[in-house]
Computed example of a mutant assay.
Amino acid sequence: MSRLRRMPPRQTRRRSYDQYCAAARALDAVGDRWTLLVVRELLGGPRRYTDLHADLPGVSTDVLASRLKDMERDGLATRRRLPPPSAASVYELTERGRGLLPVLAALSDWGAPELVERRPTDAVRAHWFAIPLLRALQAPGRVAVVEVRLDEGVFHLRLGDGAPSPYGDGPADAPDVRLTLDTDTRTALAAGALTLAEGVSAGQIKVEGDAALLGV
Results as ranks from 00 to 15, higher is better:
F155H: 02
V39R: 05
L115A: 08
Y20H: 15
R135I: 06
L137N: 04
V124D: 10
S60Y: 07
A105H: 06
D151H: 11
A190N: 07
A188H: 05
L27R: 07
A26D: 11
M1L: 09
W34R: 00
R40G: 04
V216K: 00
A188V: 00
G58F: 00
G153D: 10
E92T: 05
A126M: 02
T187Y: 03
S165Y: 13
D18E: 07
T180D: 05
A126T: 05
P84T: 08
D70Y: 01
W128R: 02
P120C: 03
R33T: 11
K206V: 10
L137D: 01
V63T: 15
P9L: 11
L101G: 10
V59T: 14
D210P: 08
E95R: 08
E208V: 10
Q11Y: 04
G209F: 04
R13C: 09
P83R: 00
L42G: 00
T185P: 09
G192E: 04
P113Q: 11
Q19C: 03
Q19Y: 02
A29L: 15
D210K: 14
A106F: 04
W110P: 01
R96Y: 01
Q11W: 12
W110V: 14
A139C: 08
G75E: 00
V39F: 05
S60T: 15
G153V: 09
E92L: 01
R158P: 09
M1Y: 09
L27W: 01
S86Y: 07
G209R: 00
A139H: 11
H127R: 15
V216T: 14
T94Y: 05
L101S: 03
D28Q: 03
R33D: 10
L52M: 12
G160M: 08
M7V: 13
E208Y: 00
T94F: 04
Q138R: 10
R186Q: 13
T183Q: 12
R14C: 06
Q11P: 13
G75C: 06
